[in-house]
Structures are given as C-alpha cells and as structure tokens.
Amino acid sequence: MQEPCTLPLDFGGEQAARDLVSGQEPLYSTSLGCAYCADSLEIMRGIPDESVNLVFTSPPYALHFKKEYGNADKADYVEWFLPFAREIKRIIRNDGSFVLNIGGSWNSGHPTRSIYQYKLLIALVEELGFQLAQDCYWYNPAKMPAPAEWVTVRRIRVKDAVEHVWWFSRTEWPKADNRKVLRPYSKDMIRLAKRGVKNTVRPSGYNIKDSFTAIASGGSIPPNVIDDETPSELLKFGNNASNDSYTKRCKEVGVKIHPARFPAMLPEFFINFLTDEGDLVLDPFAGSNTTGKVSEDLGRRWIAVERIETYLEASKFRFGMA
C-alpha cells in the first residue's frame, strides 16, 4: 500500500476545497478534495478569482460520431468550449497552469483529418489571451487502428498513436520545475559520464561540455512526449488504467467502466511538474476522476466535476469507497 501523504494540521484539506465552491454539496469528499456531480460551468462560476493552481482536464473530444459520455460536434466545438475556458482563465492563479488533453478527429467519410483542435488552440491564445507555455504529446500505442475504412481495410493511412496535451498559462511565467520530473539517465549516458568526453562543438554549433557536470543534475530532462518511459511513482501501486482499484471494483460489481480514461501517469507528470504539495488542482470534466485520485496521492487538494452521476459514483472505487 502507498503511504498516505501527511500535511500540516492547519492545511485545510477537504474543507478548504469545499469552501471554494459555494452553494453546492459534493457527491463525496476525501481528506483533500471534493467531487461534484454538476455542470462544471456552474461550479467554476462560484469559485473566486485566482484560486486554482492547476486545471488539468480532458473534455469530450469532437469525434465524427457520438459517444455515450457526450461530445460536441466539430463544427461547434470551439464555441462550446470557450465558456469553460473563460472561467478556467479567471480562476487559475497568475502563476497557475491549464493543461488540456485533446485528441484529433477524422473528417466523416473522408481519409483526411479535422483541424478543430487547432482552431481551438488559436481561439484560446488569440481570443482569450492564454499563453501557450508548451505543446506536449501523450504517446498512446494502445489506440485502436481507426477509422477502419482507411487504416485496416484500404490500408491508405496509419493508426494514430499520439494525442495533444497543451500547456497554457495566464502569464509567460507559470510555476514549473522540471527537476521534479527528471528521468533516470540511460545506460549510455552513465557509461559516457564514466568514460569522460572532451568539450566539443557539434556541427550545429551546440556546445557539449563535460558530461560529469551534466550528469550531476540527478537525471535527464524529460521530453515533451509523455510515454511508457515517463517515471511514475504511482504506477508502482497499481494506479493505472488496467489494474487499478477502480477498474477491478467496477468489474466485480458489474458497473460500466468509463470508456475514455487516461492513465495516471498523464496527470501525475503535470501535477508534479507544475504544482507543489498543498496546491489546488481542478478537473472540470472528471469522468472517473483519475485526476482527483492522483492529486490526493501526491498531496494536492483537488476539486472534480462530472455531470454524469454514474461515472462519478463509480469513481469512489478509486478511493476505496464502497
């Protein structure tokens, strides 16, 4: 079992998270957070300005077919999402961040891609004034080879394996520290450090300095691709998409598993990177509340909002609730 995070007695925890949401009772709460079955626009409108350190979320994608968890049409997606984004920009702190996981989509009946997510990106930056701190990507090799018409039948396209994860902020200087998400050095890097390398200049003009100095930093700086090599403390305790307590319990009691979960390592990376212990994380499209569970495990306060009660009720399993 993972050791629970211990915080100072005056930290506030669940009550502090609850106090930020006026006039609403959570479906359930823990020592650090609250889960609300509600319209996230309504919830966010009740949260004071500059109260949240990180909004991490994955809203329903604009697919060319409808999903049971609800998704806006591509033609209307930007207009649908901007009201949520305005509230997000208002409630995050000046040094806070907004991380958005959004998948791509094919044009219905055609072997070409929609650009709806890029239209959203432009609107968030040019209309709402978000700063694009960095574009990141989630490498997901388990994605299905779809659309079958183009990928597995006619064989004229290859399958998708990445999704966009855009990191936005209110200012150009959001809180961030990549030393908290360093990767272990590769065997080649360790061998090179032991052997030593002379200072040299690559043809590109990049200066390579003594590798002993470089390796003293404690790990390699991670790339902007989140994949199976991304370090994860939580995965050691089974907090992932295939064998976590949520999935096992749903199967045991015959509850439908949320069909669009992301792995714990995705929010874990950004929560570690962009927040400190005790900070507040909000997920306005919580689904099965992976973000809340990861936040709890990492000692962050959290608020989760999901409008479909069945999904949120089942998310209690992540916290060992019946």
Rank of each mutant, 00 (worst) to 15 (best):
S169I: 04
G196F: 02
S242Q: 12
R202C: 11
P263W: 14
W173C: 00
M189H: 01
S242T: 15
S288W: 09
V201P: 02
R249A: 14
F212Q: 14
R183C: 09
F168R: 05
S186E: 04
G238E: 11
I257K: 11
E277K: 15
D188Y: 07
S204Q: 00
A241W: 10
E229W: 09
R301G: 00
P259L: 13
E296M: 00
A241V: 13
Y246H: 11
D279S: 09
E277C: 03
D188T: 12
E306Q: 00
A264H: 11
E268N: 12
K198L: 04
K251D: 12
F212R: 14
D279C: 00
P203W: 07
V181M: 00
Y185K: 01
D227W: 03
E296D: 06
A193Q: 07
I208H: 03
L235I: 10
L298G: 06
N289S: 05
S232G: 15
D210G: 07
A176I: 05
I303Y: 06
V281H: 07
D244N: 15
Y246G: 11
P267Y: 06
P263N: 15
N239Q: 11
D297L: 15
L235V: 12
L282A: 06
E229I: 09
P231H: 14
L266I: 15
K180Y: 05
D210Q: 02
S186R: 09
M189G: 07
P284L: 00
S232I: 15
K293P: 05
Y185I: 06
P259K: 12
Y185R: 05
S169W: 02
S295A: 15
F262E: 09
D244L: 13
P231I: 15
G196Y: 04
L280G: 02
A304N: 01
E252V: 08
S245E: 12
L274I: 01
R301F: 04
T247D: 10
D227Q: 02
S220G: 08
V281M: 06
D177P: 02
M189S: 08
A241T: 12
E229S: 12
S217F: 03
M189L: 06
S169D: 04
A214D: 13
Y206N: 10
A176D: 06
A214N: 13
S204Y: 02
D228C: 08
A286T: 07
R183Y: 09
E268A: 11
V294D: 09
T291C: 08
M189V: 07
F262K: 14
G205P: 01
D188F: 11
D228P: 03
T291V: 02
E306P: 04
A241C: 13
E296C: 04
N178V: 08
I226R: 10
G287F: 02
K248P: 04
I190M: 06
D177I: 00
T171E: 00
L192A: 11
K248F: 09
N207M: 10
N178R: 05
D177C: 03
I221R: 08
A193D: 02
D210M: 05
L274Q: 06
P223L: 11
D297G: 02
K187V: 01
T290P: 01
V201F: 11
A176W: 04
C250N: 10
K209N: 04
F262N: 08
P223G: 12
K256N: 13
S204L: 02
P223M: 05
I226D: 13
D279N: 13
D210K: 09
S169T: 14
